[in-house]
Amino acid sequence: MTGTLDDNRTPFGRNPRHFGIDPDEPWPDDVPMDQDDTRWRYQGDPKGAKKAERRIAAAWTVTLLASMGLAAVYVDGANTQLAGLCWGLAFGGLGVGLILWARDLMPGHDVIASRGHHNVSSEADRVAVAESLGRGLDPMARRPFLFKMLGAVGGVFGLAIAFPIASLGPRPHRNLYKTAWGKGVRAVTLEGKPIRPSELPVNGILTVFPETDPSDALSPTLLINLGDADYETPPERVGWNIPIDGKTGIVAISKICTHAGCPASLYNVVTHQLVCPCHYSTFDVLQLCKPIFGPAARGLPQLPIAVDAQGFIVAQADYSRAGGAPVGPGFWNRG
């Protein structure tokens, strides 16, 4: 407790340039020597200062009222709009008051100081640090064998400690080539109901799932009744549809977009095009679902289907290479 008013660092500006200026710091000759940073906006204007004080008080009163309002809103069922209003006003009043306080009644504006030697050291210091570093580096460099050894060991050990990462997930193997479909697996609706061909009207479209594992994410498939539309059938896909009255009838197409895996779910019955709403790849159903617009580069695979003894739609097999499998977007070993 030794400070007196005559101390060099009084709060009231006996020494106008006491702030932050180190006397030992080099002082660029373009910095004014006698700045007074104790000035404030309404200094010498008591009326203005009083008004400023009132403005600040008013702003904080808003905060006070809004805080009380907030309590009322909470008790009264916490309406989101009213809560937002109260919160906004409370924060806003506080903020405005603080800023006005600083602007109108606080000193410390518009001062200039030297930047000093902010981030470069003297040459002596730079030499010193390089020498300290050398203290370790030289002995290390004298043992090149140990150095190389450390590199090799580090590499192997680095691989070894990566093993826990391998536990994060299974290895993909051929898993990505398979879906839950297979010989005789029934196609069921979202509700788990099997379907007869007669339930799908011409131009009808229905998303179906394999009964054995309806939640498998690569399996969702579209049944489309193409009626008598001219479906292009290469030899290896003959018999994959369920003909109705000798016409094309129902085909089954993977719903998983070959671009990035969204469900291609918008169907245009006039043009027989399927559109994926993610990036608008468009597939022509009549031409083996080949992509005709957008970023997808491959057609949607086709699932061979048939009717089982009870008259329900089943898969003849899983999606196969001939049908354009694997389902979904591409990956490195898809080939």
Binding site: L98, I99, W101, A102, M106, V111
Partner: peptide
């Protein structure tokens, strides 16, 4: 080589 502006205390602390 110089810097011109307002002090952290009290100007920028409050602002």
């Amino acid at each position: 080589t110089n810097i011109r502006g307002s002090r952290i205390w009290p100007q920028y602390a409050l602002k």
